[in-house]
Design a protein around this nucleic acid. Structure first.
Lengths: 106, 106
DNA sequence: CATATTCGATACCATTTGGTTTCATATTTA
DNA sequence: TAAATATGAAACCAAATGGTATCGAATATG
């Protein structure tokens, strides 16, 4: 719970994890399914999923012996909040993004 | 120049570097000035500045023996571009939700 | 000129990170 | 029940990371 910003930024710092996020955006996937998409072992993918979960960017649901990994868009909020501190510098794309998520949350 | 997204995300992954970004948002600073704000050596701060520079988030201007570090807002563009894929994610979700509701109503 | 200031660069160190291998556990399925 | 499947977890490893200390170069300043 503490330092959610740090955990989220850290989760996004790895290219494999960003790829996982993109894949989960189009469909929920099990660990085995995700592993098929990468040139690494299931254990490595599992570690990435743990980091993503710590960052609040995904949530995992047990279904039988499988673990369904799905995106948790709300976890992106701390990142967007931090970035929004610089509205004066970055352009308005950020504001639009935030509004999109907040619309969904209500 | 390659992998600007990765360099930018990596630059933002460290709390000290995010603090530096916040400080530079309010005013340009030399390395010595920044060092005064942290409990670490100038060499450590300099390394962070190098990572931030690699990420395109700051630019450094030599002025005499000093190096003025200033924010480079354009460097945030790759990050915001990547994050904007959530827009599409939400649009899709909302579309699916809408379809589900319409199916129910008929 | 002599000295202090500001920075760059390197070597070095402990810890973290991203990966593997291996084995154990839980759940399907034949 | 036995075997196959899907995962968890731990030990281990090389490389990256974040830090230090130290030396040297460039620039102000007395």
């Amino acid at each position: 719970m503490p330092d959610q910003i740090q955990n989220a930024f850290r989760a996004l710092a790895d290219p494999t994890r960003r790829d996982i996020v993109q894949m989960l955006a189009s469909q929920d996937m099990t660990i085995a399914q995700l592993t098929d998409c990468f040139d690494m072992t299931r254990a490595a993918v599992k570690k990435h999923l743990t980091v993503l979960s710590d960052g609040g960017l995904i949530r995992v649901e047990a279904r039988g012996r499988e673990r369904i990994n799905r995106l948790e868009p709300k976890g992106m909020a701390p990142v967007l909040d931090w970035l929004s501190f610089f509205d004066q510098f970055w352009d308005e794309r950020l504001r639009n993004l935030k509004e999109a998520i907040e619309r969904k949350e209500t």
